[in-house]
Design a protein around this nucleic acid. Structure first.
Length: 255
DNA sequence: ATGGCGCGCGCAGCGCGA
């Protein structure tokens, strides 16, 4: 089984690339973030023609998440519970024996910003929810754009980013809190080195110089981590014409 | 070196992303 995540930075613009990538890799589930697409405009028929059913939770201009699946899918949440938030950043579904939680974690903008406080509150509420989810769904995968580089090896030049949003200690502490539940960063089950990124700035030729960050993740519950065969960041679409600034990340599960 | 690009919105240029 293959599950994947991709921040597409507008599904309207990136639809041909998503269809191309699905056709090549045929994941069972693909979680999308930053669809920036209202539900009434979601390209359901295009994905159905490709063999995927779709669940989506969108809004105009900003945010928006979706799940594509080749297997029957039953949505059980479209928001963080007990957290009043108009921003569409969460979509959770049961797919076969798995529970899949698609997240678009707030960016935070800057440490001084109100948006940063919102990010930390959002992450705290997520941590509360994950405790309950793991009880109910032992086979839980949490995937998406976390907007957190967990460690300095996930940042091209940590000195430039010290104390900034995406790498600050409070954000990393929230990420570690998720791992304390027993969740594993699936990429790190298979690769210990640095220099592996999932996002590169459009500016300053970030991709061609591999100046990026690893902020898109697939976390696996203990039961799923045991089944983990591989997790790869596919850099290829980042090199296509008019790319998203994020690359897809895909995990392969055995048994 | 904090701009640099790309997106939506909407028709100029701004807010936002990371």
């Amino acid at each position: 089984m293959k599950i994947a995540t991709w921040n597409v930075n507008s599904l309207r613009v990136r639809l041909p690339q998503v269809l191309r990538w699905l056709d090549t890799h045929r994941p069972d589930v693909l979680a999308l973030q930053e669809t920036k697409t209202e539900d009434r405009h979601f390209p359901v028929t295009e994905f159905e023609a490709a063999g995927y059913s779709a669940a989506f939770c969108g809004q105009p201009t900003y945010n928006g998440v979706a799940l594509l699946s080749r297997l029957p899918m039953e949505v059980f949440a479209a928001a963080l519970p007990d957290f009043n938030d108009p921003q569409k950043r969460v979509l959770a579904a049961a797919v076969g024996s798995l529970a899949v939680l698609n997240l678009y974690v707030p960016n935070g903008q800057s440490i001084e910003s109100d948006k940063f406080r919102y990010k930390l509150e959002w992450l705290a509420q997520l941590n509360l929810w994950v405790t309950a989810l793991l009880d109910k769904y032992p086979q839980l995968a949490i995937l998406g754009d976390f907007n957190i580089a967990p460690a300095d090896r996930d940042v091209h030049d940590p000195r430039v980013w010290v104390g900034q949003v995406l790498v600050s200690e409070p954000e990393r502490a929230a990420f570690r809190q998720l791992l304390k539940h027993g969740l594993r960063d699936s990429f790190r089950l298979h690769q210990n080195g640095g220099g592996f990124y999932s996002w590169w700035d459009y500016r300053a030729a970030g991709f061609s110089r591999n100046q990026g960050m690893r902020i898109d993740h697939i976390l696996l519950s203990p039961a799923l981590a045991e089944r983990s065969l591989a997790t790869v960041i596919d850099r290829e679409p980042r090199g296509w014409e008019r790319p998203s600034d994020h690359a897809p990340v895909m995990a392969e599960l055995g048994r």
